[in-house]
Write a protein that binds this DNA or RNA. Structure first.
Lengths: 228, 228
DNA sequence: TCGCCTATATGATAAATATCATATTTAAAA
DNA sequence: TTTTAAATATGATATTTATCATATAGGCGA
């Protein structure tokens, strides 16, 4: 029994379609890396020539704007793959990938992925569906950016973080983003984000515990996120 | 020699990977449809169970917001496929598809596409790359929505329409969108869009010929689209 | 061709959000 | 612990954009 077989990525991602033989092949070609919070896995424009499995931790895919703001396109958590899009498009990375919390990732060379893609229909279908999921997400985000206010998007994003990453024993959100990062996710200025968090706090929708956030009234937040 | 073989979609889309035998199979299973400007090919929430080849005309993928505004996610022109994402995700359509100009489309049942996907590696790779292209586009759009002003996005969109659809002999843009549709593409209110077109007109960047638009100063438009 | 409906246009104003300035708090380093 | 830099917070203001009102023009059927 080799390491990849028990790995969470193998259980959750497209890789779950691989058979024993393919997993052995995978285990022999992968390389493992530890990334500290704040460090980059790859930068915009870099040629990666493979994908990264996120074994542990959380990463963000983002793009730096001309005025220095970092727009976060997507968070990636353990069990997910990173860099699939660029690899398949044969292009340098369009976004940077950085660790939001300490990460353990494995790099799988492109040649392996292509081999699996060509020889395992279930794997190729899984990979395809995962990219389709990203596309749907992205299109819905686009719609939200145009049709919802910053307040609505903040409520929506807080609920998303709660749903996807859960809470600590003290009820604070498990994933800890800076206000700047949170602003980058909802697409607004850091000050606007802080101000609205402060408003939510005053309305007892959330509680601010230092830099951490507790969601106190999920129902009300949901209502704000969805209201016309 | 059957019809599909010479079709523009067969030449431009993922379908170019199909061999003779597969094209015959395709030709026997497809059905052809004519869609008039303004009519829908499918509506949000509908289960399509296949993809549409756009043989002629232009379509828009859009989502109606609660306040009645129609946000355009993507334009689709002849040679492209429509509805791939929903089909692969096994979901009802997330967006509506409507004709912006009279269209001729062919419907290909899901079973055919899946068959090609499982038996033709080049086809599955092409399909995957096309969806990756959509994803990249969508992510870039998201970034533009946050990092660019309405003016910049209008300039960008006008250049895109010029690039992708070209111009008539009288220099007007070949694709004719209403101001409302154009606003839906850049994600702004119709009045704001009209106002900015009027500004561009006064600055001689464009010329408004009735409802049609002539791009007069591509360089200046490009500068606006890219400026900080 | 005329009248009518809709699309386009423009002005006035309101609302949302960004920006700049400056406290205040937090956490890390000395 | 003390010091210091960075993150968070909040006020004042400017800018962008939406909304509402109304005018004008274009196209289409009678």
């Amino acid at each position: 029994m080799n390491k990849c077989d028990q790995c969470i990525v193998r259980q959750l991602s497209s890789l779950k379609a691989l058979n024993k033989e393919e997993v052995v092949k995978l285990a022999n070609s992968k390389t493992t890396h530890h990334i500290k919070k704040g460090e980059a896995i790859f930068e915009e424009g870099e040629v990666t020539n493979g994908v990264f499995c996120v074994k542990d931790g959380v990463g963000k895919l983002s793009k730096l704007s001309a005025n220095g703001k970092d727009q976060i396109i997507k968070l990636v958590k353990s069990g997910e793959l990173l860099g699939q899009r660029s690899m398949i498009s044969n292009e340098p990375a369009n976004l940077s990938a950085k660790a939001v919390a300490d990460m353990e990732v494995c790099f799988i060379p492109k040649s392996e992925i292509i081999h699996f893609f060509n020889n395992n229909n279930q794997f190729s279908m899984n990979l395809m569906q995962s990219i389709c999921e990203d596309l749907k997400e992205s299109e819905n985000d686009k719609i939200a950016l145009v049709q919802k206010t910053v307040k609505q998007r903040l409520a929506e994003t807080l609920l998303y973080l709660h749903n996807s990453f859960g809470e600590n024993p003290d009820k604070t959100l498990k994933i800890q983003l800076s206000r700047e990062e949170l602003a980058g996710m909802i697409g607004t200025a850091t000050e606007s984000c802080i101000r609205l968090l402060s408003d939510f706090n005053k309305l007892n929708l959330i509680e601010l515990v230092g830099k951490k956030i507790v969601l106190q009234d999920l129902k009300a937040l949901k209502k704000i996120a969805e209201q016309l």
